[in-house]
Nucleic acid binder design. Structure first.
Lengths: 278, 278
DNA sequence: TAGCTAAATTGGTATTTACAACAAAAATGC
DNA sequence: GCATTTTTGTTGTAAATACCAATTTAGCTA
């Protein structure tokens, strides 16, 4: 390892700039540092290889800040599924309701959907990505106190659950690390306590999980299936699981990508296939 | 009324997409909608005119939400000043202290500096950007409850101030919209209340402001100068202001870009013999 | 239905960016 | 000191994008 302040310093400053603006142009950086565009290009390629930023034509864009560390291939692959789940879940709400939203990637998607719908809600959450998503909407946003966990992008702990008990919601949306006949499971003990509190403070509770969570047995059981009023997912669970859910009185909503597509772009493209070579 | 779903629908969807990813390419949008790149180009230009997004070569980037609109090239000039201020302010802390950090761009810079320093602190803040900056550090992070304000990227309100009174900090760092002989000023009433609480719950209070805040008279006076133990800024205030500060017992720390640069280079090559770092 | 108007496409050209190979310069190691 | 490695600059070419203007298409109105 050599000590070259030149390149490293540029790299650090590029990332610094990208914390304040989502996009920088190569020409801008080149003139700022007094180096050639080629050098900047190489810098950006290197940083892109380290997954610290994303390349764009003529520049670079900052990585989305929601939840950074755990974006593995599997997570990325199910992005569309989660959108579909969120879209379906959003329909369970009515204007004016008080809703509690758990921290998680799928629940964050739900928040974006709710913001897009434009319904005026009162949202209580422990997740900053959720708050950020809803920020521009007409809804009122109440955030919980607690110890900040960067991995989850939210707050947890005794303060969080204490604060939540002051409220009463019409409906709660929670996520989970696993779903088995035994109940709802999660890897994070603090998160589990928050989920239990959300469940106890809401009239109805819906679980949002994609199919990769089925039969995942992890650290801690959050609650039995019977606490749920419904689950929203992207594929039908196994027959055994479905029976269990039915017995526990849990409604199962299957979200399909077609539904969201047809709803969003009611009239997308004609049969004229265009040569989209990309 | 308007029965023109074509263009408007595209516009809405483009903005929708930009909420999920900070950058979209024209070619991507063109193939997605089944239209020509020219059409997308016009769409982006129109949306850019409405200031709903920013153009980039070959695509568009989402507007940053947390921070104020004008983050253009000129604004980036003050980024360096804020970095210097934050760097100087960070030296006022000692390991193990309890510190309260206000919401704001300069205080967010401070948080990044503290995280880089690696000191183990207990940080109490109402700002999500601050929390996120410190997230990877060894510090404990406590976040306040309250109503989420997207523009500031933090929480405010009665819940926030109530929660803060439960704590006692060694030192508080606050920002402001203006600084005059009358005292500290801010445009946001809720933010002003949070600042007052931070001041009252800390042994010492330091104000972090760049020189553009001097003589800015805005909505509300947060507090008189006398509540401060010091200010950290990038240029010396006017003589009249300096006298006032001195009379009020406020220490003035001037942060220079040279200081931070020399600190960086010293860190980079400290094994070599002491060379004159101009 | 015809005509009007906004929107979308098409074609052509100028500009910008990307990519790769190589040269120059600086730093590093011996 | 000299060779080696790393970094940066330069150049030429290909590709992608932007811009402009004319034409076609589609939606709407009278």
């Amino acid at each position: 390892m050599s000590r070259k302040p030149r390149k490293d310093e540029r790299h650090a400053q590029i990332l610094e700039v990208l914390r304040y603006t989502p996009h920088v142009r190569i020409a801008t950086l080149a003139s700022r540092f007094g180096v050639t565009a080629e050098t900047i290009r190489r810098d950006l390629d290197a940083l892109s290889d380290q997954e610290l930023l994303d390349r764009a034509h003529g520049g670079a864009v900052a990585r989305p800040m929601g939840i950074q560390p755990p974006i593995d291939e599997r997570e990325q692959a199910t992005v569309d599924e989660r959108r579909a789940i969120a879209h379906t879940a959003a329909r369970l709400l009515e204007p004016g309701q008080v809703v509690m939203i758990d921290a998680g990637s799928t629940t964050t998607q739900l928040a974006w959907q709710l913001a897009a719908n434009g319904q005026a809600l009162t949202v209580i959450t422990n997740s900053y990505p959720v708050a950020r998503a809803m920020a521009s909407s007409a809804s009122r946003l109440i955030l919980c106190p607690g110890d900040f966990n960067a991995r989850e992008g939210g707050v947890f702990g005794q303060d969080t659950t204490d604060y939540l008990t002051r409220f009463h919601a019409n409906i709660a949306f929670i996520g989970a690390s696993g779903l088995t006949p035994e109940g709802i499971l999660d890897v994070n003990r603090d998160a589990a306590w928050v989920k239990r509190t959300l469940i106890s403070r809401s009239e109805r509770t819906y679980l949002l999980v994609d199919h990769t969570k089925f039969a995942q047995t992890v650290l801690e059981r959050v609650a039995p299936l019977s606490v749920l009023d419904g689950i929203v997912t992207d594929r039908a669970p196994s027959d055994a699981m479905t029976q269990r859910l039915e017995r526990a009185g849990v409604a199962v909503h299957i979200a399909t990508l077609e539904a969201i597509d047809s709803a969003l772009s009611a009239r997308a493209s004609d049969t004229t296939a265009r040569e989209d070579t990309a």
